[in-house]
Design a protein around this nucleic acid. Structure first.
Lengths: 231, 231
DNA sequence: CAAAATTGTAACTAAATAGTTAAATTTTTC
DNA sequence: GAAAAATTTAACTATTTAGTTACAATTTTG
């Protein structure tokens, strides 16, 4: 009963697999992409444990063995899905930040482009929150690295701003959590907020929230420059 | 196959059950509490779908039928666990806030006591994040109400502060997400942060983070009072 | 174009899982 | 202290679930 299971056949190596499919982008046909997209949705909705391979079949319209052919097993699918998901959000954010000039504009670009990307791909904040809630122990290393790149980018911006004498001293991690935390909560809580019809009507749009958040973060970080405050 | 299952026996009504166990607090003996505590832990770790009743048995040392006797079914157990969990955090926060004098102290009390309670009961931020990530659709109404009480309390504080002329105009929801988001991320990410040994060493303690966060939120909200900034 | 590699399918298996049952034990109540 | 009610137990069942297998169709490559 508690004996180790004997696997008669090794599942195809995950790394080998994802590398192969990465190398020939043409070759990862509609099927593999459909699987990945549907799986990502489901993982965001109900997590790893809450998602079943059978539902993935019916929702994606792909047969089960195809899934196992492409991704080895459920854990492998999760790994690929999360890594691509995080990359698809972090990469554009870093690109946008890199194009901005000056630490203040970079901070602004950081907040705004993360907000936009995460809102465009709301599965990402959902998965991120769920993963952190679990202690991040099932988070693939590659996905974790993406988040670390994001934190590092913010750290550089804040340091540069301090050196330029326009930002106060601040803790990068707290600031990072402040920005990501508010935006992830805002984006993922959308269905919940929409479900409470017009009881209190205290909802801003995403753009308004970005503005609010940006101005709050700037108020917290900027050194006494006179700013117009059109809240 | 797709026919509705015929249940031979109705499980004991959930409401009836929880009401009964609530009424006689003495009566909810060690067993029920052990079940609840272990279940809450597990739900925080791996969510509803990721938690199994068999593991709950082995981890709590309680037999399966006892669980079903006390809580009806898995969903019922989840409902009771979440409601009690959220109440156990929100109640003390509201009490502490009510004791503070003046909107600035109340804001401070809000942040600090939520941070302390959530850190004392880290299962709560974990479950909260996971639930919001799922769209909050499985969140028991009673648990949702607790969160709404919290938001309402902050709203009152912010409004009072505006009327007193010490707070800028601000959006309560964004501010709420900012405070809860940062703190929930900080608390739940602890295992992750501890796992990265001393690579970058950019971690503050909870108390330092509370200080940082409070001063950032205050900087964002307070109207140009000269403050000492010992960051 | 033919052999080989890749991509797809349906039916199957073994294990895990939620939930049940009937009877034993403990606690409450009269 | 005995009847009744509440609580706990071990063994069982039906379903769901991850993962497999053998084979068919398609695509790639020499």
């Amino acid at each position: 009963m508690t004996q180790a299971k004997i696997k008669t056949k090794e599942p195809p190596s995950l790394v080998e697999h994802s590398t192969l499919s990465r190398l020939r982008a043409k070759k990862r046909g509609k099927t593999a992409n459909k699987i990945l997209a549907t799986a990502t949705e489901m993982f965001a909705e109900t997590g790893f444990g809450g998602s079943t391979m059978d539902e993935l079949c019916s929702r994606s319209g792909v047969n089960k063995a195809s899934i196992y052919y492409h991704f080895g097993d459920k854990a492998g699918l999760y790994e690929v899905a999360l890594t691509e998901l995080f990359k698809s959000v972090v990469e554009p954010v870093l690109k946008t930040v890199a194009q901005a000039q000056g630490s203040r504009n970079q901070l602004h670009a950081f907040i705004e482009s993360f907000a936009q990307q995460a809102s465009l791909t709301p599965t990402m904040p959902a998965v991120l929150m769920r993963e952190i809630a679990s202690g991040g122990m099932n988070m693939p290393i590659a996905a974790r690295e993406q988040m670390q790149r994001l934190l590092f980018a913010l750290k550089v911006i804040l340091q540069q701003g301090e050196e330029d004498g326009i930002f106060k001293e601040s803790d990068p991690l707290t600031t990072h959590f402040m920005i990501l935390g508010s935006l992830c909560l805002f984006i993922t809580s959308e269905p919940m907020r929409l479900a409470i019809p017009a009881e209190k009507k205290l909802d801003l749009s995403l753009d308004e929230t970005i503005q609010q958040l940006t101005s709050m973060v700037e108020a917290a970080l900027l050194i006494a420059n006179k700013e117009d405050e059109n809240v």
